[in-house]
Amino acid sequence: MKYTNNWSKSKERLRALWDREVLDRCCIWVTAPKDNASYKCYELPEKQEDKIKYWTDGELVLERYKNSFENTYYAGEAFPILINDLGAAGHAGYFKNARFRFENTVWFFPIIHDWDEDELIFDENSFLYRKTIDLTKYYVSEAKGDFIVSMPYNCGNADALAHLRGSENLLMDMLLEPEKVKAALEKIQAAWLRTNEEVYRIVCGNNDGGCSVGWLGTWAPGRHGQLQCDMSVMLSPEMFDEYIMDELQNQSSWMDHCLYHLDGIEQTRHLDKLLSVDGIHIIQWTNVAGQPRATECLDILRKIQAAGKGLIIHVEPHEVRVMLENLSSKGLYLLTWAETQSDADDLVRMAEKMTHE
């Protein structure tokens, strides 16, 4: 692994993380600019055709990441990851006639307007599917073990269906057309499984036999990825049980190490269901703007740990101490940043001193 001297030991700690064990300290990811950093600025272009190149031209993407890698100081478990991202719930783009637009991310537009007329068909020649596979192969060929190539952001079948149908329409369909919704979710699951298996076979050799969720700084041996249902903030517990639980069971059973992305305090209405899924090993807590910080939700975080699940939490540097004081270090992974290399090292030393059962 290039760009970091910590990778060998970090792999051991990350393995222990998934087993809810502590090797010598809890896992902590800290990045900072190198003391002599000279980051280049890569602004998002204005024209749509240039935005498409910004996201899908492998050489341009790789140039941006290499500039970041070369100027970033990786402390603790932090390591260089190329985030393989063509949109959240991006497998929505793998279906015939998928419509999308590139901006600061990939935005999708509904294509299912009438369940009886608009058939959902996986298209192996679709632009986003081909780009996902071809770019992954290119990134791996260029990485040569110098950095990790993450899994694509293909997570959340209901979120993908919301892209394809429109969230408001889908919510009504869940009440009025349950069988059609379930049939569509089965098709999306088939696309998810096919793509994830294909990408896993491409990346695992480069990734020391494992996978990574790029934006969460994870690595795990074997099949690993992220589950999510961001639209669950609009679902009752009964609807979550009816439409989402099968997906969680099926996808987590494919993985050796699985995490769930819990996006905001409103999703805690489904927490007991999530904790009941044996295949989910870690809950990743997201702080949503306008909602309480994780430091204000310690009782919920302790409940997650008491249920035998690990925790991944993005925290600001000043919140690290609070988390270390109030949470078990077993299965705990804190992700943060620092302004200088020295500050980054200080945060890692704090984790060393404050690690406890």
Rank of each mutant, 00 (worst) to 15 (best):
E59C: 15
G87C: 07
C27Y: 01
H91P: 06
E63I: 05
G58K: 13
G58Y: 13
S38G: 01
D123R: 03
R64D: 06
D114L: 01
I83W: 03
D85T: 01
A89M: 08
A89C: 11
C41M: 14
Y42A: 00
Y54H: 04
E117F: 13
I121G: 09
D118Y: 15
K11F: 09
R13F: 10
I121V: 14
R20T: 07
L17F: 15
V61I: 13
N84R: 01
L17N: 14
I28D: 05
W55L: 00
P110T: 10
T31K: 07
T56M: 03
C26Y: 08
E119I: 11
E77H: 02
G87A: 06
L23W: 05
R64I: 09
Y42I: 03
L44D: 00
V30N: 02
G58W: 13
W107I: 15
I83P: 04
L17Y: 14
H113N: 08
I52V: 07
R13T: 11
V106R: 06
E43A: 10
W115E: 12
Y73W: 11
L60C: 00
V30P: 02
K66I: 11
F69K: 06
G58V: 13
L62P: 04
D116W: 07
G93F: 09
T72W: 09
T31F: 05
H113Y: 14
E46P: 02
K34Q: 12
L82D: 03
V106W: 07
D85I: 05
E46K: 07
A37L: 11
T31S: 05
I28N: 02
A75M: 01
A78M: 01
F109P: 01
Y42M: 02
D57R: 13
W107A: 15
G87Q: 09
A98N: 07
K53Y: 12
D57A: 12
L120S: 13
T72Y: 08
D57G: 11
Y74A: 00
C41V: 15
Y42Q: 01
R99Y: 09
F102R: 07
L17C: 13
S10W: 00
R20E: 06
F122W: 12
Y54A: 02
C26I: 10
V61H: 05
N104C: 02
E49A: 15
E46T: 10
R25D: 08
L17G: 14
D114S: 00
F109I: 05
A75E: 00
E117H: 12
L120N: 13
K66Q: 09
I83K: 01
F95S: 10
E117D: 10
A98M: 07
F122G: 11
F108Y: 15
L23T: 05
W18C: 03
E49R: 15
L60E: 02
E119L: 10
